[in-house]
């Protein structure tokens, strides 16, 4: 079985939180990026890392499979692939495209073209969404382009015979198990659990195996697909009108708070 895993790099969300939490997040002159003076690292989207982990666990469980990681993006977007190979992916492909940015529909068209070109792909695993734009466009748009089954919110994936997979899904009231026909696109959620760390042997392998480079323009053969264009980032104002309820001790503070909530009709007298 040939599994393709889609991975992209994002600004480290903890780094962005670090700025946002203290009200110091600013947008730079381009209007489309944060002004963090380069202090926030670009890392692999955690959900994508978990998608790769799902593939590696299928292999650990005895599935005979080849795992190819794919990223679409500008010249330096390929960084994340090294980590993926070090984790255990067999092969890495960087599709160079400077247009894609925040447009999951364009990325889906490019990945679909690549998957068709590879010819033998049975399963595509993606993260449920990017932790940057939170859109979750790729899995659905890709499944449509490939006319494949779509399963979202996976917490575990296993092969089921030659033509199907079983997927454990995180749903609002717990978990369900579904059986999906191949070819399929599966998006993986954090319920899958912690991804493995690269081994030192893996890191050596990653150094020896540079990613294969492909040009998006070749794959698209003259088409210019596009869904959305990010025109601006804005940091919203936070309403900061907190009344701190003080008192001599915890009991007094609690009483003061409850009295105010009762006054506002939020509790019954």
């Amino acid at each position: 079985m040939h599994i393709v895993v889609c991975a992209k790099r994002v600004l480290d969300p903890d780094g962005v939180n670090g700025y946002a939490l203290w009200g110091r997040l600013k947008v730079d002159d381009s209007g489309r990026a944060f002004d963090t003076g380069g202090t926030v690292a670009q890392i692999i989207n955690a959900y994508d890392e978990q998608a790769l982990e799902a593939a590696l666990r299928m292999r650990d469980a005895g599935a005979e499979c080849r795992i190819t990681v794919v990223t679409v993006g500008g010249e330096d977007a390929g960084d994340v692939l090294k980590r993926c190979v070090a984790m255990g992916a067999d092969h890495a492909i960087h599709v160079v495209d400077s247009e894609a940015r925040a447009d999951g529909f364009r990325v889906a068209a490019i990945v679909a073209a690549l998957v068709r070109d590879l010819g033998d792909v049975d399963l595509v695993l993606c993260g449920r969404q990017g932790s940057d734009y939170d859109q979750g466009t790729l899995p659905g748009a890709l499944a449509e382009a490939l006319d494949a089954a779509l399963v979202t919110m996976a917490a575990g994936v296993a092969v089921d015979g030659d033509t199907a997979i079983q997927v454990r899904r995180a749903v609002p009231n717990g978990e369900e198990v579904v059986r999906a026909q191949l070819p399929a696109v599966v998006s993986v959620s954090n319920e899958l659990g912690q991804a493995r760390y690269p081994s030192s042997r893996g890191m050596l392998a990653a150094r020896r195996t540079p990613p294969e480079r492909r040009a998006a323009s070749d794959l698209l053969a003259g088409r210019e697909p596009g869904g959305v264009e990010l025109v601006q980032l804005v940091v919203p104002d936070v309403q900061g009108h907190c009344e701190i309820v003080d008192g001599a001790d915890a009991a007094a503070k609690a009483a003061g708070l409850m009295a105010r909530l009762r006054e506002r009709g939020l509790l019954h007298a």
């Binding site: 962005v16 939180n17 264009e229 980032l233």
Partner: peptide
């Protein structure tokens, strides 16, 4: 239309134009 949506977990809003 243009759509304004939450991004970076709500730390920012992203403004999108449509190309499709």
């Amino acid at each position: 239309v243009t759509a304004v949506a939450t991004a970076f977990g709500g730390a920012a809003h992203a403004v999108y134009r449509f190309r499709a």
